[in-house]
Design a binder for these strands. Structure first.
Lengths: 134, 134
DNA sequence: TGTACGTCCTGTAGTAGATATAGGTTCAAG
DNA sequence: CTTGAACCTATATCTACTACAGGACGTACA
């Protein structure tokens, strides 16, 4: 079971040591116990929380959203409503982003195809960028 | 024609005044003329450049890429080759991002659908976040 | 028990890319 | 010629970390 040094925690989660200390400082991760000499001693709860944070960040949840999710999901009185709200909001943003990027992808593909690749005064890419958004 | 104060330029481009000064400081935007009293006076070139920067950022080009595009597209000796390279590289990243987001979108959608919305001890969203990535 | 070396500690500073504030100056309309 | 909006510089703040410097701790081995 858990009596992890910061280094072990870092290896198990893939989160940098400095980042773990940073998370503690900003209150994202609870303050761990300390040895007599002052070294941090983490437990399984910290491991779980840190993995949660990491995964949520990887999935694109903003730091503030992660914090809210932690607050909601933390003390076992998890309120599905609010968690759901955040997830749905995030989902909407993801969809919007996909749309934007898909448009850009089409635009860029067409532009690059037009591009001769030579040294010409007029460049399709530059033109595209100079054109105001419709 | 162009004899724009910084405020007018900000209104025409939607870029904050402070950000315009910031762009000037870091060399992204050329230093404008000044009135006798020291107020900045921009011209159409600045307007064009600032619009270009804004659009490129909106399209997801990194600040460094924008700078390179400006350098290439700037002095009329525009080299289509390099511009094309940047665009293609960017296009690859856009496609990768679309893939990632699409996967996330499916994942989130499925999760949210599973979610009852009530006050239950187990929440699909929280579960999803606590599950290690496959 | 000693010692050596890896790990850990705090504190500070740096990063990008802005954004905000404080305190003072200039411009332009009436 | 006044008044108020807009502008000026300089410095500080922000987010989300990352990177030192200089020193203290912990543990494996002799």
């Amino acid at each position: 079971m858990g009596r992890l040094s910061i280094g072990e925690l870092a290896r198990k989660t893939g989160v940098h040591i400095e980042t773990i200390r940073y998370f503690e400082k900003i209150g994202m991760l609870g303050a761990p116990d300390r040895t007599a000499g002052g070294h941090r001693v983490f437990d399984d709860g910290h491991l779980r929380t840190l993995k949660f944070i990491k995964r949520a960040r990887e999935l694109g949840f903003a730091p503030k959203e992660v914090r809210t999710l932690l607050d909601l999901g933390g003390p076992a009185e998890a309120c599905c409503d609010e968690v759901r709200e955040i997830a749905i909001h995030h989902l909407e943003e993801v969809r919007r982003k996909i749309d934007d990027l898909t448009r850009l992808e089409r635009h860029l593909t067409a532009t690059v195809e037009q591009c001769s690749g030579g040294h010409v005064p007029d460049c399709a890419v530059i033109d595209m960028l100079e054109t105001a958004r419709p």
